[in-house]
Design a protein around this nucleic acid. Sequence first.
DNA 1: TTTTTTCGTGCATATTCATGCAATATCGCG
DNA 2: CGCGATATTGCATGAATATGCACGAAAAAA
Lengths: 247, 247
Amino acid sequence: MLTEQRKSLLLDRLRADGRLVAKDLSLELAVSEDTIRRDLRELAADGLLKRVHGGALPLAPEHGPLVRRVGLKTDEKAQLARLAAPLVTSGSVCFVDGGSTHAALLNALPAELDATIITHSPTIAAATERLPRVTCILIGGTIYKQSMVALGAKAHGALGDLAFDVAFIGGTAFAPDRGLMTVDREEALFKAAAAERAASVAVMLTAEKIGASAPFKIMDAAAITTMIVPDVPLPDTLTASTDVLLS
Amino acid sequence: MLTEQRKSLLLDRLRADGRLVAKDLSLELAVSEDTIRRDLRELAADGLLKRVHGGALPLAPEHGPLVRRVGLKTDEKAQLARLAAPLVTSGSVCFVDGGSTHAALLNALPAELDATIITHSPTIAAATERLPRVTCILIGGTIYKQSMVALGAKAHGALGDLAFDVAFIGGTAFAPDRGLMTVDREEALFKAAAAERAASVAVMLTAEKIGASAPFKIMDAAAITTMIVPDVPLPDTLTASTDVLLS
DNA sequence: TTTTTTCGTGCATATTCATGCAATATCGCG
DNA sequence: CGCGATATTGCATGAATATGCACGAAAAAA
């Protein structure tokens, strides 16, 4: 393994996982911890990451409510993202909803991926920058501060002439009998419209959303093609109609 | 084995494997490591790969252009941004172009600002998150990787029914006789269309852009209402029709 | 506090690199 | 064909780089 190659691998890993642990990396890459520490020191000197005791963290964990959420459950989301990433196949056309979980998905996509990503989230769109072969179509409209995505008539209209191979749809709550839910009516309508235009629907859920409830229904559980969830007990009713990827 | 043949084989191998290791190649091709190293040196000089200790790697696509630019001239841009921020007055409706300079502008806006910001840049839109009283309208369309903004027919159409108090327009070059210019025709058309819909046009320019040239004209110097520039000598011809803020 | 883990530095070793030089091969041209 | 010019290759040498280990300091954990 070339030194420079290892360093860029570290940076990729940092982007995907949100942190680096020197000890784990030394085992995984079969080099001494000293070597990893040296790498981290040099990358930090180049201003590419921030050294901390035990490993390293991204430089500017951008501020703001959304990113604060990103900071939470980082591991869980990164793990879900690694599971979900293969669903974005080469040549496919994917809708990606907003939210920190989907931001983690973007970070987990391989750099050489060749696909089309359609989103109404400026954060997701910005994350496509590192993917040179990905075409990104941004759906415009009025940005809703609560979730930082474009919604409203304009955004709805822009969906009109699109069709997706896969739609990654997020929500704030999920229950087998009530389906996928969220806290805002406008959001729910948009997510439902996006899901309807997709050949398959993928839903990534962190543990605390499962079994919870929220006022506005996005879609039935049966409409979900693939669920990506942590390895927690799930009702059997799900597995009948839905693929479930467990982390 | 001919030298050129070997070199092109090296490039093929680099594409396939994502890296080259000098020692392995010398064994495999039955030539000395010196020969391989010489090849790599020459290929690197031709800009076809990146030499590293032990071999070579593909040319670094790693640095996203925007990310890299954000890191550069940070101080200068922040200073321009402080000057330009008061142009975004309470209650006004502003168009903000993409680019790292405008990202700095967003960072310089006061948290209590109450205004409407319209942009075709996902990065700018994401930056409005920390401004709770700012309404953001995102212009959608196909994202152009080069500049990470939405362009094309969709984006153009979305401009149609909008009018701005101020438009912040960027460019890659400016000269008093040639006006504001950029490197892409599609970009130039969009910027011009945005500027036409604004009561006043503000242009923030870092020093290296002044007096430079680029192929596509956005607008005449006379169409610029306010220029925000570093404190460098400027032709008198400007000050006649344009406000100039010096840092 | 005590204990454990991680860090930084200095140092030793192994690998890789750049340079100069010589041997050989190839080409250009009369 | 002959002969010089140029290019290619391999080798030797000293420099630069990469890595691992040891040891005391610093930080985190108990």
